[in-house]
Design a protein around this nucleic acid. Sequence first.
DNA 1: TGTCGAGTCCCTAAGCGTTC
DNA 2: GAACGCTTAGGGACTCGACA
Length: 233
Amino acid sequence: MKEAPVRFPQLKPAIFLERQGLFRALVELEGHKEEVYLPNSGRLEGVLLPGARALLAEKKGQRRKTSHDLLLMELSGVMISVDSRVPNELLLESLLNSRLPPFWGYRRIIREARLPEGRIDFLLTRGSERCFLEAKSVTLVSKGRALFPDAPTSRGRKHLELLKQMVKQGSRAAVVFVVQRGDALCFSPNGSLDPGFALALRQAAEEGVEVYAYGCQVLLEEIKLAEELPVLL
DNA sequence: TGTCGAGTCCCTAAGCGTTC
DNA sequence: GAACGCTTAGGGACTCGACA
């Protein structure tokens, strides 16, 4: 697979102190404490560790209440992207440039496709053929195995139900787990934390929903999709 | 008709409060 | 106890009105 990077602006190093809310974190930046935007509402277990190195992007905007986004954490030399918007961007880049072999040949790509039952991240079409694609952000890795979710997710199960419905209606449907770090060797659902999601994913796969996982190469300058990872359901 | 800006809706997931 | 709704911050998509 060829590379499809999302580039970062110049990042500022900081020290992560604590999470202050769903979307806020307190860091030490250039000798003072600073509240920054954390673009991820997940639990981020084992990633947001006090004292760890954080990397920030300066942001300007009228509606903003913070002046920086927390984009990367560095733990034991491993760079981890904590921006939950990145997987969609990476997939879009890869789809637009025909860089994902399982999804080659689709002529039209619609983001955030609206359905009566909900919204799906991508709808790919080729004539009358349709493929629904849902992207999931993964940040948790244990002993080389990427795990999703890092907190019980009823929304995740809802998305799987929706994909199953699309398969029943004759469309193709897939869920793509994007592991936003470079130290994962394989992917599994996090059955010990959310057995319901793990069961739903296995059932979805049995009923025809395709399951893919990709690792990422995370650098200070950019993040790009890496090789496809084995999925162990 | 085309462009621009303002406003609205929806998405992310956890946590809290309310209702049954 | 379960189910549901709301809130949180920020951004993208979309709609609508104003104007050239």
